[in-house]
Design a protein around this nucleic acid. Structure first.
Lengths: 216, 216
DNA sequence: CGAAGCCAGTAGACAGTGTCTACCGAAGCC
DNA sequence: GGCTTCGGTAGACACTGTCTACTGGCTTCG
């Protein structure tokens, strides 16, 4: 409806990629497949993305943006830092399990550009103004640090907020990863999945931030 | 030296694959590449592994076995369950960072056989007597559960050992994953990497098992 | 001793991939 | 009007995993 006709193909390729990874998984994100579904020839994406990885990175970037938005919504829906962190944690693993393919892509460093490319060329291709992507995770992390710092006590060990936040994040990430891998499910028995997950998230919060009742 | 000449190629393919993934990463684990390095034609592996995934699964299986051995060694080197868990945790993230490629392969469910194959055929190919591979992680997990159960208190939340163990495992896994992804490094600043890692592991233990001094 | 059969491995085909390069039509600009 | 530039096409190339036909050597049986 709106006038989003400018730079159409670039956006459309990313749209198609997002749609595709959400429904079919990362294995279906072939360069030619995306082009096919966008209705263009297999050489067309090259005009906007110098390599397959660049396109995938743009798709993953959308995922990070989406996750950030969910963080904001989750935080906005709670009052105390503690509750905000709980909401954030559930949003994190919820996102990971709800958008399995996207979450997988977001952390598949072998498919993304990150920085590993080595020589960085000299300004010739300024068209790829990607925000480095790996730094996409940094604002998300800093939001956690901020919330942790707002708590009165920083956790059982009295660690600085950054360490506690990192440990908490790692915990959430591991829960998401192992759960979607299937190991946790069959390790914990076949109780209600949602309940088990929330239990794990709560345990992570209790563990890293101290028992719930003591928080401000 | 020993008489390991029987069934040579099958073992040799896995050997080559292990060597390759350790030195060059999972991206280099092409079926043809492995065959090439083993000195056989690209069709030869098919005699022992019906598909590429089957070969990769066998390679990953070696990784799980190796990790299990490290667990045993780590546990044997400490006395109290608490210290054993600490040693186990360090062994886990240590293995993940030391053998990056193998660790990545071990949890790349899209490359492994796991169970996703759908129809399971009816006994025609009994040559693939894989122990399902996903169950390879189960004994490792149960070892953690056992150690956690041997502690006097099950953690701040008073959760059953399986839940605490799962949370701890997820935490360790997340540390390894995010660290090797690079996010944790640049989030925590550029202090001594080893020290930072140990700090994170210790924080995980403290968090899930309670402060160190209170343990038996 | 000779023939049958199997077994491990070879070699080539096939469809599919990502990248590269030559080309082409339409638009804009002097 | 002739020119260049832009957005996209189409084909080639090397490479991948899978499949199938084939072959040389070994065992085993008649």
């Amino acid at each position: 409806m709106s006038i989003e006709r400018e730079n159409s193909l670039r956006e459309r390729l990313v749209d198609v990629g997002v749609e595709l990874v959400l429904t079919e998984g990362v294995a279906s994100l072939g360069l030619r497949e995306i082009a096919r579904r966008a209705g263009v020839s297999h050489g067309a994406p090259r005009r906007y993305f110098p390599t397959h990885h660049a396109l995938l990175s743009a798709i993953a970037h959308r995922g990070f943006a989406d996750l950030g938005a969910r963080f904001a919504a989750a935080v906005a829906g709670a009052v105390s830092p503690r509750d905000q962190l709980r909401a954030l944690g559930r949003a994190y693993v919820g996102y990971a399990l709800e958008h399995r393919g996207m979450f997988e892509l977001m952390f598949r460093h072998d498919l993304l550009d990150s920085e590993r490319q080595g020589q960085e060329q000299q300004g010739a291709e300024r068209a790829t103004e990607q925000p480095r992507l790996r730094e996409s995770t940094l604002p998300l992390f800093e939001r956690i640090v901020d919330l942790v710092a707002r708590q009165r006590r920083y956790g059982p060990g009295g660690q600085p907020p950054a360490v506690t936040a990192a440990a908490l994040w790692a915990n959430l990430h591991g829960i998401a990863q192992l759960w979607s891998w299937g190991s946790l499910g069959l390790a914990l028995g076949a109780a209600s999945p949602e309940q088990q997950l929330d239990r794990l998230v709560d345990a992570a919060l209790d563990a890293h931030l101290g028992p719930a009742d003591a928080a401000s």
